[in-house]
Structure formats: structure tokens, C-alpha cells
Design a protein around this nucleic acid. Sequence first.
RNA 1: CGGGAUGUGGCUCAGCUUGGUAGAGCGCUUGGUUCGGGACCAAGAGGCCGGAGGUUCAAAUCCUCUCAUUCCGACCA
Length: 479
Amino acid sequence: MAKKNKVEEITPINEDFSRWYTDVILKTELVDYAPVKGFMVIRAYGYALWENIQKRFDNEFKKTGHKNVYFPLLIPESYLNKEKEHVEGFAPEVAWVTQGGDTQLAERLCIRPTSETIICSMYAKWLSSYRDLPYLFNQWCNVVRWEKTTRPFLRTSEFLWQEGHTLHETFEEAQKETMRMIGIYRDVCEKYLAIPVVSGQKSEKEKFAGAHATYTIEALMHDGQALQSGTSHNLSDHFAKAFEMKFLGRDNTEQYAFSTSWGVSTRLIGGIIMVHGDDNGLKLPPYIAPTQAVIIPIAQHKEGVLDKAYELYDSLKEQFRMEIDASDMNSPGWKFNQYEMKGVPVRIELGPKDIEKGQCVLVRRDNGEKIYVDLDEVSIQLENLMDSIQQSMYDNALADRESKTSVAKDMDEFKKNLAENPGFIKAMWCGSEDCEDKIKEDTGATLRCVPFAQEDLGSDRCVCCGQKAEKMAYFARAY
RNA sequence: CGGGAUGUGGCUCAGCUUGGUAGAGCGCUUGGUUCGGGACCAAGAGGCCGGAGGUUCAAAUCCUCUCAUUCCGACCA
């Protein structure tokens, strides 16, 4: 358990948020930069976090009948070209393989930016009857999108994600699936990542290339910028028609299937960092933290301290993701700071004075509260603490989001809000792309979504053009 | 992809203007003393200065190209 961490200062979060973010991800050893621009190495601590996130989502996918599969990394160019909107959307950021060994390929191959095309082409091959449906498959993989500006987790040229791809007999069924999955995304984010999200529909302009409709969950970061955190697409029969996904229906006629796709990525890690983090570094939700509690022995050279510490560790390690830092080279104070920086939800201090009293000290990362607990009650107290920290992190994130959410009835108010209190702006929208464009041009804010939960803002006029508007939308600057 | 900044032991940086054989602090190793919020003493190890080319007797330093990071815009999960 050698500690190699360089414990150094982190730029204060409100002084320079970007630098704070970079400092945190590097110093907590979540990631490091790879030699190729836009690529990152996910280090052990970062990957452990990703695995815990994966488990939570994967569990929900399985519960709803989805099975995991794996499709290849490389896709022939001709496949990509089959769906017009899709190829136009992705072509600018596709990476190509043109050579194998020293042989030039007859057809160049794209490194998947997403897998609709290859998956649909295989579905087309397998599908013959309505009895085969639905297809409910998911894959965990990497994708490559050649991005111009990159930031670890938030936008990298390669990232890890899951992509669900389902096939249905009817449009209605596909729509139901699309909504079900965006609901799962919302629930997992809120329950396990402690990130409150706004869920709703993307505008035509912002929807997925080739989709009939895109639904999204949007989270708000500490700096008031929004982060698109997961999307679910109803692809209708667009890909079915492009890839000949046909089956013989109940009425003995040939019909096109209806498909959906949905994904969340390692970008969520960026969200966790930027929603919960503070001046001391990371603050990880207990339900997904790689280490839920760390035991730090105090005056560990003294008779019996280490024995007692390990005894405690052994008694908890089955129930919690535990760590014990009995390294001799750093002082307890150093360790306190170290594990706070790494966002470990609970620190357990155990020293000679505690042992005398048969107790230990639990210290919460989220609010610094110290709790003195009898040694034989640690397990149950820790269990409660996990729930209470999780809940309180969610509550705080929600309160923070609400404090950064405002209503605008006209553009003056819109700009004023964005300048004075950056965050979500709720406003009426007439539905035109012109207004969407104009708002973006004038303010830098984009339409994040038309939320499922519509509200009465006391106006029925578009915030931009003043025409009659029926939809309430969320706007924000976004990552 | 445009504009700015940066790149020197593991980390943070000095040295560059005015070319002349590479510096500090932290970290690391070993030994000892410490230990309830970033301990201390002593002795050590470690760098052809992002990469390539050029100018020069001589380049971390000057010139050209290139790669990467970062910030600001345009583009996208």
C-alpha cells in the first residue's frame, strides 16, 4: 500500500474552476494524459470508480431484460454511409484505418464513433419474424471521435461507454423503451451518483444524427455550466430502412423494425467531480466510491494500536470497501488530507486514547463532522453513515442547482441572469430553430432540453421572439 | 480549426534578455527520532533542458519546423 501521491495544493475551486478540475483529476490519480492529443490514461483509482458506476447501470439494464454483447471496433465505410443524417453528423470526427501491415485496404474502415451501423447490419441479418423481437442488447466498449478541443472525462477523442441498441415491432414499443432507458439513467444518476438531473427532450437541432427523437439528462456543474450526462434515442424506422431490418409481421406482411439506442459514458466521472468536489479535492458518493472508508491508525508505533486497527479493518472489509493506511512514512495529518483529496467518504481514526475508551472516530468527508463510536457499533454506524452521506450529497447538489436556476421572460432578463448567476435558465420557447440559434449567438447558452416536467412560468411568449410559445425549456452554457 | 501562454530530475519552478560543461524547494532512497490536521535530523540517488533540423569553436539559451499541455473562441457526448 505504498503511497506515492504528491500531496500538493489544489487551485481553489472559485478562483479558477478549470485549473481546479485539472489539478484534482491529476493529483488524485484518476487519470493522466496519454502521449497522443485528446487521449487519456484512466489510472487505477479512476477505473475503480468507473467499474462501480458500470455495475450500477449494468445491474439496471439486466433487470430490464437487456443482455450484453460485443461488436467489433472497425466498421466498413460503406456501412457508415447508409444512413444519410447519421453519416453527416459523424463524418467530421471519424478516425480511419486505411492500411493493414503494409497493405493498403480496398475499403477504408472507420473506428467506431458509435455502433448503430454495424449493429443494425447484423440485426438485419438475424431478424426474420416478429417472434424474434424485441432485441434488447447492450455493449460496454470504447469509441473514438476526433475532437478538436479535449478535456479528460468531459471530451476526449476516445472514451468508454455503454451503448444499448434495441429493436422493436412497433414505433410505440420503441418509444416506450426510449423513455424507460432515460428514466433508468435519471434514477441511477440521482440515486447512486447523487447527481440531480433534468430530463427531457432535445430540440431538432440538438438531437442525435439519424434519430427521430433524443431524450437527455442534464446536470448542472459547480460553475453553472450544464453537462449532458446521458442520452436515449428513438430511431424510429430510420435505421431499419437504411439497413433493411425487416421481419414478417403478425399479419404475414413484411415490416420494418423500430430501433432505439442509448448511452452513458466516462463523462459521468467528470460530472461527479464537478458537482460534488470542493477546495480539498474530490468528494465521492459512498455508493460508488472505490474506497468507502479508510482507517488511519494514530501513533501506530505504540503497543497494540496496529493490531487493533487491523482487527477493525478485518471486521469491516466484507461489508464495506475498506482501506487501511498503516504506512510509516507519512504523518496522520498528511493522511487526513490525502484521503480527503481522494474523496473517501469516511475516515476512521483509531489511536491509543480511543483504544483505552473502546471507541474510534468517524469523520465525514462531506461536512467534516466527527463522530465518536464504540468499536462494536462501528459497522452499523458506518452503514447508516453511508446512506446519510449519500443523501446529504444529493440534497446539497440539488440545493446548489436550484440556487443556480432562474426564470427569464425576455432576453434582457436572460442575459442578466446568465451574467449574475450562471446556471440553468428556464424560459418559454416558440419551438423555432431561429430563436435557438439567436440565443446561442447572443449568450453562448444552448437549449439543453424541453423538460418532461413542464412548469407554468407565468408567460406564454417566447423568451427570444415574443411569439406565442407553448414549451418551457432549459437553457445553459454547456460542456 | 483560429488567437494567446507553456514545455528544464517524480512534482513546482529558476536559469534564456546578454550562448561558455545544469540549479533550488518539495518528493524519492537509507538510518534514526517522531505520530490526535500536511513532523525533524543526517547521509545519498536522480536531468544529455518535449522532439527534429539549423546558426556557432560552443546552444537549455538564438532561428525554423514539429509534438503535447493549457486558456479563449468556432465544432461536438
